[in-house]
Design a protein around this nucleic acid. Structure first.
Lengths: 107, 107
DNA sequence: CATCCATGCTACGTTTTTGATAGCGCTGAT
DNA sequence: ATCAGCGCTATCAAAAACGTAGCATGGATG
């Protein structure tokens, strides 16, 4: 395990990782995935869950996330995570844990 | 474990998580952390590692990451991850793995 | 049928963020 | 003294995101 991490440190940033990082760098992208963890949400419910996202950006993101196979649209149910999206959720759960530790640390 | 994930799904998005997601949503933010996994990098080396980031944005991000205690500046060595930054790297390692599986899946 | 309401989504003008490029001031080596 | 590399700033252009209004559809209700 320690060895594997060392290899990760040495290896150049892969194309796949670069695009995952590019995805993460678009505003609201991960937040949308995170909000969908509860189950399918309608467009408007998703908008409300994110708080202040504008519908144009939400629409933009949903297209991108659908193109990547992270989110899918279900008629009459709205949007929900695919299997890949679910796996991404687990990554975000790790981020969630990290964020909790970070803010605890800042006090 | 399964139970803990269910709780995560039910719980509302915390303030800490919202700001972590906001951080992720700024372009290059996570990429910078990822590139610093190899060890300390100078401003220009970091710029080169990211590929095409402009110096003004890099400067902006570094300030933000320093304010959050994720990155620190070491005289004559450049920038490196703090302990929190290292823990964030481990989260990104999970993202790395996810990205590899995702692209494998798309073929 | 007519009305109402919620939905997914688009249009559009403004603001914010990011980008590209040039270059300044400093430091250390030659 | 020169020179190269460094961290970083300035400036302007381009792109992304925002806020708001509103359209079209479809189902429920009177």
């Amino acid at each position: 395990m320690a060895q594997r991490v060392q290899n990760l440190r040495r290896a150049p940033t892969s194309v796949a990782m670069a695009s995952a990082l590019a995805l993460s760098g678009r505003r609201w992208a991960f937040r949308i995935v995170w909000e969908l963890r509860v189950g399918p949400l309608s467009f408007r419910a998703l908008q409300a869950a994110c708080g202040t996202i504008s519908p144009s950006v939400l629409q933009h993101r949903l297209h991108g996330l659908r193109d990547l196979g992270i989110v899918e649209r279900i008629p009459r149910l709205g949007y929900r995570l695919t299997a890949s999206g679910e796996r991404l959720f687990h990554v975000l759960a790790a981020l969630n844990k990290w964020s909790a530790e970070l803010t605890k640390e800042l006090h």
